[in-house]
Design a protein around this nucleic acid. Structure first.
Length: 494
RNA sequence: GAGUCGCUAGCUCAGACGGUAGAGCAACGGACUUUUAAUCCGUAGGUCCCGGGUUCGAGUCCCGGGCGACUCACCA
């Protein structure tokens, strides 16, 4: 008999013993009126005498995380959503029968307890148990109490164990929830309307990633999981919703890394009559709001580096940034042949068919990106790599677009939107033809979106912010899997 | 997709040179009424990721596979 089966056998025997004694080991009869946090805050700053003179009776429930048995009394810690609190149970206080029943309770079980607070000799605030109720009997062991759960694969595959034993993991996901709530609050306070647009789309538009494909049986129709909500949110601008946002999942059938999960959460928002420059200010305001609410400071330490979000943030054009980090004069990169030579020198692999703008973008990514640690807006993206962005009035080879870089990573992407349906059609066709040459896919144009544009979309600017990457920055997480509760994993084979 | 590294008890980890597989916690039995990584005595628990190979003998060496981590590639 192996250890695992023996453990289960013992717990199942206790289950039978409890039922034989008339106890439901999965009862739902206890209504906790307090939390561990309530107990702590109620007694905070009080002396031992004041605490023990206090007649408040607490009633709380949670999982038993540790248990120290002294024969006629026991100490245990209960963990609820707010944290842990210790409890103490004595045989001569609750009676022989109740205490015998308590002996059937194990680490991992859920229990409800009632009692007053006291301070132990070593000064720990503790509930002296008047009575208890078993709420759920656990049948499997918890990970080790001191080292917790370390195995990264088990932590992700059995995230519930990770959450039970690793307090910092709970904190990360609580912060994630808080960040999303704050983003919502920020946008709603600025009169943005939260909307939901299709996750299943007949044409996967709004970005250039590989989509997941699925099929609707009744309509006998292939559908794509969306790679971006962009084209639907713009339809809403056409419809007269001047300020809209959506926080939802995108799906991209690409590689997995510490920065990429196949499904990830994206914030996109669109604001009529705004420009990309307005959105730079809005982005600064949003981050400052988040920092103030979360930390009370514009300084955030990420992986040992202090990031300073005090506005205004640095701004550089893409060409300037590429020039600085490729040690060139910006004007020198205006010569396509020279730019190409420099890019090759920095390890960019070129086929020869790339446009000048694509070469500059590749050079920027190869040289500058990883150096952009402090918040930096990169502007003036070439028109060839920005199929949905409005061309700059003074220099039509670039667009009114920016990306925000922090800690060497792309966090946000925004631009003044293209509103001219004929220009949009030309860009779609050029993009689809380029893709068709590369992949052999048929040229597909989102005619329905163009029809919407032909009805007239107000001038607008839009932005996308990768929520997972934002949460990583603000929770000091090294991997995107640390901020996604259930990241995608290969199925285990039996 | 490529390279490097990892996989030993439920958990956290040791296991030189190839020679009967170990500890702590958790579990089980016992002692103990203010402990807190409780303590003390005792017991049990292993498909060493899987499959081949070399060898008298493989957790250890070789080959193949699985899963994971990291780096790179891909992701405008």
């Amino acid at each position: 008999m192996n250890d695992q089966r023996e453990f289960l056998k013992h717990r199942l025997q206790k289950l039978r013993d409890l039922r034989a004694a008339g106890i439901n080991p999965f009862a739902n009869t206890f209504k906790p009126r307090h939390t561990a946090h309530d107990v702590r805050t109620r007694m905070e700053g009080k002396t031992k005498e004041e605490i023990e003179g206090c007649t408040d009776v607490f009633s709380l429930a949670g999982r038993i995380m540790s248990l120290r048995d002294f024969g006629k009394s026991s100490f245990f810690h209960i963990q609820d959503r707010t944290g842990k609190v210790q409890a103490y149970i004595q045989k001569n206080k609750i009676g022989e029968n109740r205490y015998a029943l308590f002996k059937k309770i194990d680490i991992g079980d859920f229990i409800g307890v009632c009692g007053r607070a006291f301070l132990t000799h070593s000064g720990e605030l503790t509930i002296l148990v008047d009575d208890f109720t078993l709420l759920t009997k656990s049948l499997r062991p918890l990970p080790e109490k001191w080292h917790g759960l370390q195995d990264i694969e088990t932590r992700y595959r059995q995230r519930y164990l990770d959450l039970i034993v690793n307090e910092s993991v709970r904190a990360t996901f609580q912060t994630r929830s808080q960040i999303i709530a704050l983003v919502r609050e920020f946008l709603v306070s600025r009169d943005f309307l939260e909307v939901e647009t299709p996750m299943m789309q007949p044409i996967a538009g709004g970005a250039a990633a590989q989509p997941f494909i699925t099929h609707h049986n009744a309509l006998d129709m292939d559908l794509y999981l969306r790679i971006a909500p962009e084209l639907y949110l713009k339809r809403l601008l056409v419809g007269g919703f001047e300020r809209v946002f959506e926080i939802n999942r995108n799906f991209r059938n690409e590689g997995i890394s510490t920065q990429h999960n196949p499904e990830f959460t994206m914030l996109e928002f669109y604001c009529a009559y705004a420009t990309y420059e307005d959105l730079m200010h809005l982005t600064e305001d949003m981050f400052c709001f988040l920092c103030r609410e979360l930390f009370g400071s514009f300084s955030v330490t990420y992986q040992g580096t202090v990031l300073d979000f005090t506005p205004p943030w640095k701004r550089m054009t893409l060409k300037e940034a590429a020039a600085v980090y490729a040690e060139q004069q910006p004007s020198a990169l205006d010569d396509p042949a020279h730019a190409r030579a420099v890019a090759s020198r920095y390890g960019v692999v070129l086929s020869g068919s790339e446009s000048h703008g694509e070469v500059l973008t590749a050079l920027f990514e190869a040289t500058a990106e990883r150096h952009l640690i402090q918040p930096t807006f990169i502007t003036h993206y070439p028109v060839e790599v920005s199929p949905l962005a409005r061309a700059n009035e003074d220099d039509p080879t670039v667009t009114d677009r920016f990306e925000l870089y922090v800690a060497g990573r792309e966090i946000a992407n925004a631009f003044s939107e293209l509103t001219d349906p004929e220009d949009q059609r030309r860009r779609f066709v050029a993009q689809a033809e380029a893709k068709a040459r590369l992949t052999g896919d048929p040229v597909v144009i989102d005619e329905d979106f163009l029809l919407a544009l032909e009805h007239g979309m107000p001038p607008a600017a839009g932005e996308g912010i990768g929520i997972d990457r934002l949460v990583m920055l603000l929770t000091d997480a090294a991997s995107i899997r640390d901020v996604i509760l259930f990241p995608l994993f290969r199925a285990e084979r039996s």
